[in-house]
Amino acid sequence: MIALRAIGAVAAAAALLGAQPLPDPVNDSVIVDPGLPRQLSQFGFFAGKGVSTPNRALIRYALRTPLFSDYADKQRFMYIPAGSRAQVKENADVEFPVGSALIKTFGYGSGADFRPIETRVLLRRASGWEALPYVWNADLTDADLKVAGTRLPIAVTKPSGDKVQISYAVPNKNQCKECHANNGRVTPIGPYFPNMDLTFGELRRFRSQANFPKVPVVNNGPVWNDPATGSLDARARAYLMTNCAHCHNPAGSASNSGLFLNADAASDRVATGIYKRPVAAGRGSGGHDFAIAPGDPDRSIMVHRMSSTEPGVAMPEVGRSMVHDEGVALIREWISSLSQD
């Protein structure tokens, strides 16, 4: 998967070399000024139609273990304004300077067939991060701000080959924050250096605009579906961290649940879900007693909720209308491997 992406990036770079004039610079004032730009084009992140010609100032990256979003393909860029530098912290979080932006496009189809649906931007303003969703028009000439989100009928082909018609949900501005909230403030989730997947060229560009700590931090975190990159336990925890911990951490939207799947909580067995009883699960409990019943995925609330698409039961609560079969299989395998008391 990573290799394929690298090839794609090379192909994209080759295509770029052949492109005629370079795009105009990114419009820095639109990023930092207060207000809600109505069109994505106002930022200058992309030239031409859609997202196939990114501004040369953007640095593309991917995530080694990404969030599942109805099998959508995602194209991620970061923008760090000239003269400013990001800071990779000792805990491997990446801090971006004012004027930065993270640009994430959701769509279906790979390579040249990629058709964008929506582009979400996180803007680092002096007041903090602002999260805004933009929905592409039919001609892909621009994407319009949809603060209230929307729903779109989309046909999705699963990895199994099954075709499914879904009601794709573009999140509203508040839902962006629900996942991106840290103590009530919007915060990026993806740029955690060990989980970032950068090609050699992308990494070189990122390093030219980022300071690194004295302690070595490397982007070699587990890839959830690649056993060569980590043990089953490491890959399952990486999956839960990306897919759940943005809410399930002591400062996140699910702080009241006491179920914490962030890296720092990993040593607290009950907080991780093992023999943890539900608090406010309602029918989300599925009649089970524990978030994780070690050795018994069929009696684990976590598996029940990941396997459901029903609102009120399904986890995550937003951003998913399909079951991530392969992710559920990973978590089932992991729970099966845990020994009972």
Binding site: S167, A169, Q175, A181, G184, G312, E317
Partner: peptide, 12 residues
């Protein structure tokens, strides 16, 4: 006819 979200109205 709710299709998603864990609650009807959320206030934060």
């Amino acid at each position: 006819g709710q299709l998603a979200a864990g609650e009807g109205l959320l206030v934060t």
